[in-house]
């Protein structure tokens, strides 16, 4: 296989990953690294670099569409980004010292967790009283509901902040967006409405990934010949996925994609333990 065929195949695989990721809301990043490592036998460190770049592209590309709807909360996003970007630096620091096999095992575990989290049905909780800290940080907000503006309060700020640091560290260590952990932090810990959580999380993913991508690029982890088809493929796929999202029935597809993620998760853990990554 020469460079041309290799680039075309990886571009196609990334297109599919980005398409399904956008359609199911699970993000394409989580399958890019296992695809490169397991299918194309790419060293996991190159795979992480290429995946991070594609995560920035999809997050920034989709954010433009989300902000117009007025769901995302820039104060919540910016405040929590101090945690995710610091976490991302810590994640890169860890990645530089642990073995590829250890990274693969953690990656597999995160894949299994994301599949589990995505299979659960989220229901917005009742209105919560605002915490003192949330008020001082002006995190409470409002979003457009069916009957006009609906306001919401934020609570559990320290727990959410801590979870965000973990989400950032996982993003830096594994080259993924960590969208599932971010939504978990905002939706479960801080009781932020689901729609606000998901759109604000998407907004934060690009900034978090940028914090680690710069470090990786300067350390030689980002190979242009590999990152190029991954970035272009995932970006094109996610833009395409966002277009058909409105019309498609995604429930079956969601389960199917979650099943693929579970299989990849077990395989990453197995290969990591067997020392074959």
């Amino acid at each position: 296989m020469n460079v041309l065929e290799f680039s075309a195949l990886i571009g196609l695989g990334s297109l599919l990953a980005g398409f399904l990721g956008a359609l199911t809301g699970l993000g394409g990043g989580v399958v890019v690294v296992p695809m490169l490592a397991l299918l194309f036998h790419v060293d996991i460190r190159y795979a992480i670099g290429a995946s991070l770049v594609s995560v920035i592209a999809t997050s920034s590309g989709a954010a433009a569409a989300y902000v117009r709807e007025g769901y995302s909360n820039i104060r919540i996003g910016m405040f929590l980004e101090t945690a995710t970007t610091a976490g991302a630096l810590a994640g890169v620091g860890i990645a530089l010292y642990v073995s590829s096999n250890a990274i693969a095992i953690v990656f597999g575990a995160v894949l299994l967790c994301s599949a589990y989290l995505s299979s659960r049905h989220w229901v917005d909780g009742a209105h919560v009283p605002s915490s003192k800290l949330a008020e001082r940080l002006r995190l409470n907000g409002a979003y457009p509901g069916p009957n006009g503006k609906e306001s919401y309060n934020v609570t559990g700020v320290p727990a959410g902040y801590g979870l965000m640091f973990v989400a950032g560290a996982l993003s830096g260590l594994l080259g993924i967006g960590s969208g599932a952990v971010k939504v978990l932090a905002m939706d479960r810990a801080m009781k932020i409405p689901f729609k606000v959580s998901t759109t604000t999380s998407n907004f934060m993913i690009g900034v978090t990934a940028a914090a680690s991508a710069g470090l990786y690029l300067h350390r030689g982890y980002i190979a242009p010949g590999l990152a190029m088809p991954v970035m272009l493929g995932v970006l094109a796929g996610s833009l395409l996925g966002a277009r058909v999202l409105v019309r498609a029935r995604v429930k079956v597809l969601r389960y199917l994609f979650a099943a693929v993620i579970v299989v990849l998760g077990f395989e990453m853990i197995y290969k990591g333990i067997a020392g074959r990554i």
Binding site: N2, V3, D43, Y221, I222, G225
Partner: peptide
């Protein structure tokens, strides 16, 4: 791709760019 399309890619072993 025009210049290097015919070469054999190798990303199996990591060495810094």
């Amino acid at each position: 791709l025009v210049r290097h399309g015919g070469e054999i890619p190798n990303y199996a072993v990591f060495h810094r760019e």
